[in-house]
Each structure stands twice: as structure tokens, then as C-alpha cells.
Lab assay of single mutants.
Amino acid sequence: KTVEVNGVKYDFDNPEQAREMAERIAKSLGLQVRLEGDTFKIE
């Protein structure tokens, strides 16, 4: 899975870890996480 923030992509081998990281980043920035294919987009 991939986490994308402001056009910057971070790859994770563990999908659960990617989801947790995406949620943590989104919460700290006051944004939403949206799953698009294999990418968690933070917008």
C-alpha cells in the first residue's frame, strides 16, 4: 500500500501499517483519508 500526502508518496509493505500511518498523518493535519486503488490519499 501507498500513502500519498501533498503529492509525496510513501510505500509500505504492511497494509495495516500504511492505514494507521495515513490516519495519524491526516489527523495531525486536520485532513481526510481516502482510499483510491492501493493508495491512501490524504486530502
Rank of each mutant, 00 (worst) to 15 (best):
V3Y: 04
L29E: 02
E36F: 07
A18K: 00
L29S: 04
E20L: 13
E4W: 14
Q17P: 02
D38W: 06
K1M: 14
V5K: 02
I42R: 00
S28C: 15
F40D: 00
G37H: 06
P15Q: 09
V5R: 02
L29N: 02
K41H: 11
A26I: 03
L31I: 07
K1V: 13
N6H: 11
G30K: 06
R34F: 09
F12V: 05
T2N: 07
E23R: 11
K1W: 15
V5L: 11
Q17R: 10
E16T: 10
L35K: 07
A26Y: 03
V3N: 00
K9L: 10
F40Q: 00
R24L: 11
E23V: 11
R19S: 05
E43N: 09
E20G: 06
N14K: 08
V33Q: 02
G7I: 02
Q17V: 10
V33D: 00
R34H: 09
A26M: 03
A22L: 05
E4V: 13
G37N: 08
Y10N: 01
A26V: 02
K9Q: 08
E16W: 12
A22E: 00
A18L: 04
V8M: 11
Q17I: 11
V5M: 08
D38S: 08
G37S: 04
V5S: 03
D13L: 10
R19F: 08
G30E: 03
M21W: 15
T39K: 05
L31F: 09
G37K: 06
K27Y: 11
S28P: 02
I25Q: 02
G30I: 01
S28W: 14
K41R: 10
E4R: 06
E20T: 11
V5A: 04
E36P: 01
E43K: 08
E43S: 12
G37R: 05
F12Q: 01
G7P: 02
G37Q: 05
L31K: 04
A22S: 03
A26E: 00
M21T: 09
A18P: 00
R24S: 09
D11P: 10
V33K: 01
D38L: 06
D13A: 12
R34L: 08
E23D: 10
S28G: 07
N6I: 05
K41Q: 04
E23Y: 15
A22W: 06
V8R: 12
D38Q: 08
V8Q: 10
A26N: 01
E36S: 06
A22Y: 04
G7F: 04
F12W: 04
R34V: 11
L29W: 07
Q17E: 14
N6V: 04
K41D: 02
D11N: 14
K27Q: 12
F40R: 00
G30S: 05
N14Q: 07
P15F: 14
E36R: 05
E36G: 02
E4L: 13
D13R: 09
V8L: 09
K9D: 03
E43C: 15
E16M: 10
L29R: 04
E4G: 03
L29A: 04
D11A: 14
R19Y: 09
D38A: 07
E36Y: 11
R34P: 02
T39E: 04
E16I: 11
V5C: 15
L31N: 01
K41S: 04
I25F: 08
F12N: 00
V5H: 09
R19K: 10
N6G: 10
Q32A: 13
F12P: 01
T39N: 06
Q17C: 15
Q32D: 07
E43L: 12
D13T: 11
E20A: 13
F40P: 01
L29K: 04
G7V: 03
F40M: 04
I25K: 01
F12C: 14
R34E: 04
M21K: 03
F12R: 02
M21A: 12
D11Q: 15
K9A: 08
S28Y: 14
E16V: 11
K9M: 09
K1Y: 15
D38G: 12
T2A: 11
F12T: 02
P15V: 11
Q17K: 12
F40Y: 15
K27A: 13
R24M: 12
I42Y: 02
E36L: 06
R34W: 07
K1A: 13
N6P: 01
R24H: 08
Q32N: 10
V8E: 07
F40W: 15
N14V: 07
T39H: 05
V33T: 04
F40G: 01
K9I: 10
E16D: 12
Y10H: 06
T2L: 07
V3L: 06
V8I: 12
G7T: 03
E23W: 13
V3A: 01
Q17F: 08
R34M: 07
K27R: 13
G30H: 06
R24A: 11
D13Q: 11
D13E: 12
I25M: 09
V33Y: 14
V33E: 01
F12I: 05
K9W: 06
V8G: 03
L35T: 06
V3C: 11
L31D: 00
Q32P: 09
L29F: 07
K1D: 03
M21P: 00
P15I: 12
R24Q: 09
V8Y: 11
G37D: 07
K1N: 09
R24V: 07
R34D: 03
I25W: 13
T39A: 05
V33G: 02
Y10S: 03
Q17W: 08
E23H: 13
L29C: 14
R34G: 03
E36I: 10
K9F: 09
V3R: 01
N14E: 08
F40H: 02
V8K: 12
A22C: 06
K41V: 14
N14G: 06
D13C: 15
L31M: 13
N6Q: 08
E23P: 00
Y10Q: 04
D13N: 10
N6M: 13
S28H: 13
E43W: 13
G30C: 15
I42S: 01
E4T: 08
K1E: 03
G30V: 02
G7D: 03
R34C: 13
V5T: 02
E4M: 13
A22M: 04
G37E: 05
N14I: 07
I42M: 06
D11H: 15
G7R: 04
L29T: 04
Y10W: 10
A22Q: 00
R34Y: 10
L35W: 08
F40N: 00
T2K: 12
R19I: 06
D38N: 12
E20Y: 13
K9T: 11
Q32W: 09
E20S: 10
L35A: 06
I25L: 10
E36A: 06
D38H: 09
P15T: 10
E23N: 11
Q32R: 13
D11V: 15
P15Y: 13
A26F: 05
K27E: 10
I25A: 04
S28A: 14
N14H: 08
P15M: 12
E36M: 06
A22P: 00
G30L: 04
G37W: 05
I42K: 01
E43Q: 11
E36Q: 07
T39P: 01
T39D: 02
D11G: 11
D11E: 14
K1Q: 07
L29D: 01
N6Y: 13
E43G: 14
E43M: 12
M21H: 08
P15G: 09
R34K: 11
E16K: 11
A26C: 12
E23Q: 11
L29G: 02
F40E: 00
K41E: 02
V5P: 00
K9S: 08
G37Y: 05
E4I: 14
V5G: 01
T2W: 13
Q32I: 14
V3P: 01
V8F: 11
E36W: 08
V8C: 15
M21S: 05
K27T: 10
A18I: 03
I42L: 11
E23A: 10
V33W: 14
T2F: 14
I25S: 02
I42Q: 01
A26K: 01
E36N: 05
R19H: 06
E20H: 09
R34S: 07
I42C: 12
N6F: 15
E4C: 15
R24W: 13
R19W: 11
L31R: 05
I42D: 00
K27D: 07
S28I: 14
N14C: 14
M21G: 01
A18D: 00
D11K: 15
N14L: 08
T2G: 05
I25G: 00
D38E: 08
M21N: 05
K1S: 12
L31H: 05
D38I: 05
A26L: 04
Y10D: 00
V5W: 15
K1T: 13
L29I: 03
K1H: 14
E43V: 14
A26Q: 01
T2E: 03
D11M: 15
V5I: 13
N14P: 04
N6C: 15
D13K: 11
V5E: 01
E43A: 10
G37C: 14
E43T: 12
T39G: 05
P15L: 11
D11C: 15
V8P: 01
M21V: 12
A18M: 03
K41L: 11
F12A: 03
K9G: 04
V33L: 11
V3S: 01
K9H: 07
G30F: 05
K1L: 11
F40T: 01
E20N: 09
G30Q: 06
A22N: 00
